[in-house]
Simulated scan of single mutants.
Amino acid sequence: MGGTVLGAELFIQTGCKTTPEKEAAEAGVKALPDFFTKDEIAYLDEIAETILPKTATPGAKDAKVGEFMNVMVRDCYTPEDQKIFKDGIETLEKRSKEKYSNGFMQMQPQQRTELLTALDKEAKEFNKTDEYKAKKEALAKEEHIKDSIAETKGNFGYAAASMPKHYFSMMKELTLLGFFTSEPGATKALRYAAVPGKYDPCMPYKTGDKAWAT
């Protein structure tokens, strides 16, 4: 997930009340078009809400995780990963209809949870196959050679290739990242101090206490 982090500027924007279009206009630049349609963003919101539903604390929809995914996939993903993610939405919808005779948006909450639980298990097994391990080992050797050549040329900033992820792993990662870096996630689900104090490695902790956002 480290490769998906944009830095503080993006995380501040997720809590702003102004729209990207308005911010772009104020800055005198043209806003980038959305990567997903409004229907797809709403679809991603429902997937995220199934992963992190609203309980006593806000859920993923409260944090507008669907819009967060739109920005992250558009601005940070490679074309290859963008395709995996986009195709993943179609695959998830197909799986919904095959198993429940309904699209994901029409399914009952329990059915959504069952489906995503199965996909989560499938995603965890995705990188454990012998074929995947062999490809990963071969890629690692190729990248080691590239890295050695780049070092001799003094180039330490070339983009390294990486193995493709399962589409649901991407969705789950962005759900967690988008929620816990949002205003409701950081302040309602976690404990937040706008101006943190000194570093204390031995703060008292009681079972049930929220983790710290800062």
Rank of each mutant, 00 (worst) to 15 (best):
K146D: 06
E23R: 13
K61A: 11
K135Q: 11
E151Q: 14
N70H: 11
K188C: 07
K136C: 05
E80R: 10
F35G: 03
A193F: 12
E80I: 08
D34H: 15
A138W: 03
K22D: 13
K97V: 10
K64D: 12
K128M: 14
D34C: 08
F126S: 12
I149M: 14
D130I: 02
Q110Y: 05
F180S: 05
K121D: 14
M1N: 08
P33M: 06
A150V: 03
P58Y: 01
G208P: 06
A48F: 01
K206W: 02
L190C: 06
K146F: 07
K198Q: 08
E26Y: 06
P164Y: 04
E90D: 08
F168W: 11
A160K: 15
F85K: 01
R191I: 05
G103M: 09
I41M: 13
L32D: 15
E26W: 08
F35Y: 13
Q82D: 12
S96G: 01
I149E: 03
R74S: 11
K30E: 13
F179H: 04
M171D: 00
M69F: 08
E114L: 07
C16N: 14
C76E: 15
P196K: 15
K172C: 01
E40S: 08
Y167L: 05
P204W: 01
V195M: 11
E137V: 04
T19M: 05
E23Y: 11
I84N: 01
I41E: 09
K172G: 00
E122I: 04
G2I: 03
E23A: 13
E173A: 14
I51W: 03
A24E: 06
K146G: 04
M170R: 12
H166G: 06
L32F: 03
G88I: 05
T91F: 07
C16L: 11
F35C: 03
A8G: 07
A123L: 00
K206C: 10
A8Y: 10
K135A: 13
E142K: 15
T91Q: 14
C76M: 15
T152F: 04
M1F: 10
E40N: 03
N102K: 15
T57F: 12
T175W: 02
M69I: 12
F36G: 06
K124P: 00
L52E: 01
R191N: 09
A123I: 02
L119N: 08
E151D: 10
D81V: 09
E46M: 05
L119R: 02
Y167T: 07
R112M: 13
E23N: 06
P79H: 05
D75R: 14
I145P: 00
G157W: 04
P20A: 12
T78F: 06
D147F: 10
V71D: 07
E46K: 14
N102R: 14
P201I: 07
G208H: 10
F156G: 10
A63N: 03
T129C: 04
N102G: 03
E9C: 04
E122S: 06
A48C: 13
F104P: 00
E137I: 00
G7A: 10
T57V: 14
L177C: 02
L119E: 15
